[in-house]
Each structure stands twice: as C-alpha cells, then as structure tokens.
Design a protein around this nucleic acid. Structure first.
Lengths: 180, 180
DNA sequence: CCACCCATGTAACTAGTTACATGATTTC
DNA sequence: GAAATCATGTAACTAGTTACATGGGTGG
C-alpha cells in the first residue's frame, strides 16, 4: 500500500513523534490501517532522507522524543499520490478460505468462530456509533458541517456500513453453521 | 495470509495445474483472493516438498502441464489450519488515506474516482447476482440445499453484502465530494 | 528498587509484486 | 508463418511481521 503517505496525512493533521504515530495507528487511524512501531520508525527515517518530513528533538519532554513535521516536498508528494487513480483491489479474506475448507471437509469448529465474530462486529459498531455521536451528530447540524468534517464523517460511516454488513452476514452464517 | 491453504482448498474442490489455479485465482476465487502465477508456482513447489500435494504430468495434454492433487498430509494440515482461531484483522484501505488527504489538503479529484468506484460496485453486484441466480436460487429450494452448498452460497452472500454496502457508501460520499 | 510505560531502534524472516525468460501449441 | 495463448519458471525487489535490544522516566 503506502504507509509513508498514510503517515504524512496523519502528521499533517497533527505533528508528532514516531511513538505517537504508532499509538494512533494502533487505535483511531487503525480503524482502517494498522502499522507496527518498527515499520513506522523505518518509514520515517526514509521519508526524512527524501526530504518529505523533518524531525527535531522535543524541547518540552526530557525523553529522546523526536517530533516529525511534513515539509512542502511531502505535501506535494502527497497530493500527487492521492490524485493517482488506482483500481480497487479485492481484499484477501482468509476466513472465506476457512469456510470453504469447512464446506469441503466437514465441520471444523467455525461455529464458535462465527459467534466470536458476531461479538467483535457488535463491539466495533458500538464504538463507531459512540464516536459518531461524540464527533459528528451532537456537535453541529449535518448541514452546517465543513467539507473537511463531512469527509471525516464519511470515513467513519464506511466503518459503520462495513460493520453493519459484516454483522448481518455473520448472523446469517452462524445460523447455517449451527446445523451440523 | 496463507496462500498454500487457499490453494489446497481449491485443489480439493478440483485437482488441476498451477496454470489453472492462476486462472481461478484471477477469477471466481479471486472474488476474495488474488494471486499471481509466479507466487502460485513457488508455493506449489514448497507444498510438494512438504508432502502436502503431489503432481504428475498430464497424460491427456501434449504440453508440459502438471496436475496437482492434495495428499492426506495436506488434508490434515488444512484441517488443523482451518480450526485455528485467528482474530479478524482490520483491512488496509488505501482509499481512506486518499480521502483524508482530500479532507486535509482540499479537492484532489477524488470525485471522479468515486464515480468510477460506483460503477465497479454496480458491475460486481450484477455479476454476483447473476451467479446467485445461476448456482443457488434456480437450482433448488434453499431448504433442500446441502450444508456444503449453503456454505458456498454464504461466501457469495458475503460478496453481495459487501458490494451493497460499498455502493451505498460510495453514493453518499460522491454527493459530498461533488460539492467542492 | 522494581515494575511498567515511554521512546527508539536493529536484524532476520515471510509474503507478495514486478520484471524478465522460455518454449510449446493453437488459431488466424 | 505470425500472433496469441498455454504453461512453467527465475531473480530482484518491496512491504510487512516477529523477535530482540536498550535506556530513561514514573509510580507504588
């Protein structure tokens, strides 16, 4: 994919350290992208070499924290990349392979797995709904939202739509697998 | 993920050559998994080394086609793997990074991209609906389906649910991006 | 002072992509 | 006889994961 560009978007929204990025990419941004700290540090170093970002030691903290900031060259690169047209790729879903295995070889315990997945979908959905309330529905009327805020809301909406679909499908599938 | 296991499931459904697998993994199975021929040949060689599959030259054809077949050791391994519980991973969706870039930096031409994505969702949905009619709805009553067929139908259903959600979301998002 | 979190990194490995290569067979 | 497709592979590269390492700061 393109982790460096994802990192730059995040840094434009707010400059921070590699460690902070790792936290973000395990949480909020991690809704649709996850990355380990090892990978983030490596990419940040490469990006600095290319002149897309610059870093400086954090004055305020006593630790060896380095704050990264996106430079103009980085913004230009990000614009170029985001405007590129890319065909949507089919997602690899390992679970479907398991399901096919269950179809071909007989029950393999995927019923329990389905029950677990239903729970996860419900949890995520509840979380997204809470964020929706907090950040997009209470704050202002939908009509008075800025374009930027509307787009940010759409990204959350994607998560909601995805989890709703996944939940519906998981429940259907659970009922079928139950009948061994 | 685990390409070897995906290949074995496919070979259990029907023994065939690496070339045939590459065709399948670019088409029907490619609904949820894609793989290049290079990767497939490499994996088949490894799997044969491990004793999961065996291959023999195709008698019928004059070419140097090799037909692969799953061995007992392969079936055992597949069962073991499919029963393993694995946490669902958040999918990386590059497009959301682009959207965030558009939110942060202003219009970058993603409206056209959205229009294109709506078309793709519609096409895929139409295709899945056609397969649904052909393989699952006309053939027999849903009640009289075997467990195996029901599971196979659920895999297609996943594609339908996903595309429906994606289409709905894309239309919403298109309307928002249109207002530059 | 011990455990835990902050903060950064290296090294080795695994999976996946892109580019290149080759020869045989079928189709026009 | 040329072009397309069948059928197999190698090599080099890129992205991502796992394991390991280190040292400082904070709270009990």
């Amino acid at each position: 994919m393109s982790l460096p560009h994802a990192l730059m978007v995040s840094l434009i929204e707010k400059s921070c350290s590699g460690y902070d990025l790792a936290q973000r990419f395990g949480k909020s941004i991690g809704f649709f992208w996850q990355a380990s700290h090892q990978q983030i540090y490596r990419e940040l170093a490469k990006m600095e070499e290319k002149g897309w970002v610059k870093s400086e030691a954090d004055e305020e903290s006593k630790t060896k924290k380095r704050i990264y900031e996106v430079l103009d060259a980085g913004r230009i690169e990000l614009k170029r990349w985001a405007s590129e047209s890319v065909e949507p790729v089919t997602q690899r879903e390992e679970f479907f392979v398991r399901l096919r295995a269950e179809a071909a070889l007989g029950p393999l315990g995927l019923v329990d797995e389905m029950r677990h997945r239903i729970q996860i979908h419900e949890q995520k959905l509840a979380l997204y709904r809470a964020i929706e309330q907090r950040d997009f529905l209470s704050k202002a009327h939908k009509n008075s939202m800025t374009r930027e805020l509307k787009i940010q809301y759409q990204i959350l909406r994607a998560g909601i739509v995805y989890e709703e679909g996944g939940l519906k499908w998981s429940k259907e599938t659970y009922e079928i697998l139950k009948q061994e």
